[in-house]
């Protein structure tokens, strides 16, 4: 409309130079923007640009954190497969696998803070991923303990508690036998 107006006003004047840059308002121009040109990025001023950058980063961090939090799941599946492979007998192999299955979650849990250190951000909510991470690792730990139990290495049976009990003493004592000859 501005253009039409200008044209109509131009009827009265011979020429006019409009120094206002209307580049930000493309609608006011007759010429369309070149193909592939995005005006939006040029439109931001410096502050808005950095804010936008940060937003993107935090988004990315959040995404990554969730990814990291989900990582033990793969591990868990793999461990499960290994355990199934190892069988239920006490071997060097099965014991090794079981103990690694126990150790991995524990060490991972110990380093929860470190794992999420790179994604620390005031704007990123890390509680969710952390909880997921912890839960999955606890799951891994549970799997390890379950495996330990199936191997019979957990004192969950009565036999584990009585096997070292000394025999009961006799109250009475009886000696004798065939006469010495």
């Amino acid at each position: 409309m501005d253009k039409g107006k200008a044209v109509m006003e131009g009827v009265g004047r011979r020429w006019a130079v409009d120094f206002t840059d209307n580049s930000t308002s493309p609608s006011s121009r007759d010429i369309p923007d070149p193909l592939g040109f995005s005006r939006a990025s040029l439109d931001q001023d410096d502050s808005t640009q950095s804010r936008q950058k940060k937003d993107a980063e935090s988004n990315w961090k959040a995404k990554k954190a969730w990814e990291v939090a989900q990582a033990p799941l793969k591990n868990l599946l793999m461990m499960g497969f290994m355990m199934w492979m190892a069988g239920n007998t006490v071997h060097l192999f099965s014991i090794g696998i079981t103990f690694s299955a126990l150790w991995q979650p524990i060490s991972a849990l110990q380093g929860v803070g470190k794992v999420f250190e790179p994604y620390k951000d005031s704007r990123v909510e890390l509680l969710g991923p952390k909880l997921l991470f912890i839960a999955l690792n606890l799951g891994g730990l549970a799997l390890g303990v379950w495996k330990l139990n199936t191997l019979g290495l957990l004192p969950t049976h009565a036999s584990d508690w009585v096997s070292s009990l000394p025999p009961a003493q006799d109250v009475e004592y009886s000696g004798g036998g065939v006469n010495l000859h």
Binding site: A158, V162, S163, P166
Partner: peptide, 17 residues
């Protein structure tokens, strides 16, 4: 000298000697 009074069976069962 007898060390223990329990005999552990395969299925984690205990028999007392």
């Amino acid at each position: 000298v007898v060390h223990t009074q329990a005999k552990v069976m395969t299925d984690q069962d205990v028999m007392y000697k």
